[in-house]
Design a protein around this nucleic acid. Structure first.
Length: 487
RNA sequence: GCGACGAUCGUCCAGUUUGGUCUAGGACAUCAGAUUGCCAAUCUGGUAACCCGGGUUCAAAUCCCGGUCGUCGCACCA
C-alpha cells in the first residue's frame, strides 16, 4: 500500500515533515515544518534544480523579500483578482460567495469589479437571506487570499507575497543591467510564498506557507523561434495532454504539430522534463497538461501544468505560463518606471515578454517520497529508494558489533569524512536493525567495519536497494562517495 | 467555511458504553547495559501519553459545553 497516509506516517516517525506549532492546540492549519531528514531532502532537491536548470541554462538567481509593498500587488492584479466577494451571515457564520449567490437568487450577473456597496444594494433590494438560518444579509466583504501585514508603528499596509515571481518582475531592470543581460534572460528564485487558503489540507499538498522555485524567462516576443539551444533537446520525449488526448512525442514533433507554439517554450519544457527525470519520479506517470482558455490564469496566454499521478490523484507540480508582457507593463504603469530595454541581440527596443516555470517544491518533495517508497515484503522491510543525490544521508558508518577495536576504526572513518559528506555514525543495536533503520530514510549506502578491517583496511559497502555487499579499501571511500553523490 | 466522524506514550492499540480498581496497561520503536563474526535475534533496566479551555461531581481519560486540529463530503483553489 503506497498511499498518502503511509507517507504521512513515515514522515512523522522519521522527521521528514510534521505540523508546525504542534505542541499548541490552537495551532492553525496549513503550516508545516521540515524535520532534519526532510530538510536535507529539500536542500538536495533545490541543489538538483540549480544544477539541471539554473546552471545548465546560465540563469541568474536572486533572493527577494517576502513582504512587499502594496502597490506591487495593485500592479500584479492580486489586490483585485486574488480576492473573492463574500457575504457572512451574522448569526450562523456561513460564508457564501457574494457574486455567485446573487446570480443564483436574482439572475443578476455581478461583474468582477463591482464594488461592495453596489452588491450590498442588491442584497437589500432583493431581501436576500442566509439559506441556513434565514437571517437577512447586510454587507458583503472581500476575502483576499493574501496575508496583509502592518509595517512599523503606523501599521502601513503591505503584503506577504503570494508568489515569489513578483520580486523578479519588480527587480528586472536592475538585474538585467548589472548582469549585462541578453534576451532571453532567465531569472530564478527559491523562496517562500504565502496564501491564506480557505481550507488547507493534505499536509504538503496545500499549504498556507510554501516553497516555490520559480524561473522567469524574459524574452523578445519576436525571437521565440531563434533559440539555438533547442537543438540540445529536440529529441527529448514529452507527454502532453490536450483536452482528453494524451500524446507522447519529441520536442521537435510537438513543435511541428503546433501543440507547443514555439522553440523557446519547447526548450524550457524539455529541460524541466529532464530535471524531473533525474529526481527519480516515474515519467510515465507525468504529463504536461495544456490548459484550456477557461482554466488559464487571467495573465496567461499559453499555459501548461506539469502534473504527477500520485495516490491522491493528479497533482500540479509546475505551472508553465506564457505571461506575455503583462507583468512588466503593469509594473511600469503603476510605478511609472520604464521597463523597456534594448535587446542587445537584435538591437530593438522591447518590453520583454515572460515565460515562467513556477515550481512547487513541497509538492515535488511529496511526489518524490511517494515514488521512492517501497514495501519489500520478501525481506520484511520498508525502503525509500531515493536517488543518492537526494537522500538525506549519503552513507552510514557502522561497526559490525560493539567492540572497541571495530568502533575505533569506524569512528575514524567517520571523523575523516564527515565534513565532506552527509554521513553518520551508528553503533547501537544489531547490524540488521541498523540496516533497516537506514533504509527507511533512504540512506543508499552502509559502510560496515568488520573483523577483516583491522587486517586488510577494507570495509563492506552495502547497497540499499539490492542489499548486496562488496569490499572496498578505506582509502577509496572518499572517491566512491564523490562519484555516487553526483547526479 | 459548512456537515459527518474522530483525537490516549514516537507509532499502533487497550481503557470511555456503566465516572472510583488508571500515581493510565500492552506491543513495536527508542535509550543504557549484557550478548552478538552481517540483515528488525535474545536478556535486564529506563524514558515516554489522556488535544486545549471551561463545567458537572466527593471523584473525570471517561459525562456536558466551547475551541483547535485531523479524515471524508460540499464549497473554495493563479
Amino acid at each position: 500500500m503506497v498511499s498518502y497516509d503511509r507517507i504521512a506516517k513515515l514522515s512523522l516517525e522519521r522527521g521528514f515533515y510534521f505540523p508546525s506549532s504542534e505542541i499548541y492546540s490552537n495551532a492553525p492549519a496549513g503550516f508545516w515544518e521540515y524535520g532534519p531528514n526532510g530538510n536535507n531532502i529539500k536542500n538536495k532537491f533545490i541543489e538538483l534544480w540549480r544544477r539541471e536548470l539554473v546552471r545548465r541554462d546560465d540563469m541568474v538567481e536572486i533572493d527577494g523579500a517576502q513582504i512587499m509593498a502594496k502597490n506591487v500587488f495593485v500592479a500584479s492584479g492580486h489586490i483585485d483578482n486574488f480576492s473573492d466577494p463574500v457575504i457572512v451571515c451574522g448569526k450562523c457564520k456561513s460564508i457564501l460567495r457574494a457574486d455567485k449567490y446573487i446570480l443564483e437568487k436574482t439572475g443578476i450577473n455581478v461583474p468582477e469589479r463591482m464594488s461592495n456597496n453596489e452588491m450590498d444594494k442588491i442584497l437589500n433590494q432583493y431581501n436576500l437571506k442566509c439559506p441556513k438560518c434565514g437571517l437577512l444579509f447586510q454587507k458583503s466583504e472581500q476575502f483576499n487570499m493574501m496575508f496583509k501585514v502592518g509595517i512599523g508603528p503606523n501599521n502601513d499596509e503591505a503584503y506577504l507575497r503570494p508568489e515569489t515571481c513578483q520580486s523578479i518582475f519588480v527587480d528586472f531592470n536592475r538585474i538585467f543591467k548589472i548582469m549585462r543581460g541578453k534576451l532571453p534572460f532567465p531569472i530564478a528564485q527559491v523562496g517562500k510564498s504565502f496564501r491564506n487558503e480557505v481550507a488547507p489540507r493534505q499536509s504538503l499538498l496545500r499549504l498556507r506557507e510554501f516553497y516555490q522555485a520559480e524561473i522567469e524567462i524574459f524574452c523578445n516576443p519576436n525571437q521565440l523561434d531563434t533559440i539555438s539551444k533547442f537543438d540540445e533537446i529536440q529529441d527529448t520525449t514529452l507527454t502532453i495532454m490536450e483536452g482528453t488526448k494524451v500524446k507522447k512525442l519529441t520536442a521537435k514533433e510537438a513543435l511541428d504539430t503546433k501543440i507547443i507554439p514555439n522553440k523557446l517554450i519547447a526548450y524550457y519544457l524539455s529541460i524541466l522534463n529532464e530535471f524531473y527525470e533525474k529526481t527519480g519520479i516515474d515519467m510515465n506517470q507525468t504529463r504536461f497538461r495544456k490548459l484550456s482558455d477557461q482554466e488559464k490564469a487571467f495573465y496567461a496566454t499559453i499555459a501548461f501544468d506539469f502534473e504527477f499521478n500520485t495516490s491522491v490523484g493528479w497533482l500540479e507540480l509546475v505551472a508553465c505560463n506564457y505571461r506575455s508582457n503583462f507583468d512588466l507593463s503593469q509594473h511600469s504603469k503603476i510605478s511609472k518606471e520604464k521597463m523597456e530595454i534594448m535587446d542587445p541581440v537584435t538591437n530593438e527596443k522591447v518590453l520583454p515578454h515572460v515565460f515562467e516555470l513556477s515550481l512547487g517544491i513541497d509538492r515535488s518533495i511529496y511526489s518524490i517520497l511517494e515514488q521512492s517508497f517501497k514495501e519489500d515484503y520478501e525481506n520484511n522491510r520498508v525502503v525509500l529508494k531515493l536517488k543518492p543525490y537526494l537522500a538525506p544521508v549519503l552513507a552510514a558508518i557502522l561497526p559490525l558489533v560493539k567492540k572497541p577495536e571495530l568502533e575505533e576504526i569506524a569512528k575514524n572513518i567517520y571523523y575523516n569524512l564527515k565534513k565532506d559528506f552527509d554521513i553518520y555514525y551508528d553503533g547501537s543495536g544489531s547490524i540488521g536493525r541498523r540496516y533497516r533503520r537506514l533504509e527507511e530514510i533512504g540512506v543508499p549506502f552502509a559502510i560496515t567495519v568488520d573483523y577483516d578491517t583491522p587486517n586488510d583496511r577494507t570495509v563492506t559497502i552495502r547497497d540499499r536497494d539490492t542489499m548486496e555487499q562488496r569490499r572496498i579499501e578505506i582509502k577509496d571511500l572518499k572517491s566512491f562517495f564523490e562519484k555516487n553523490r553526483t547526479p
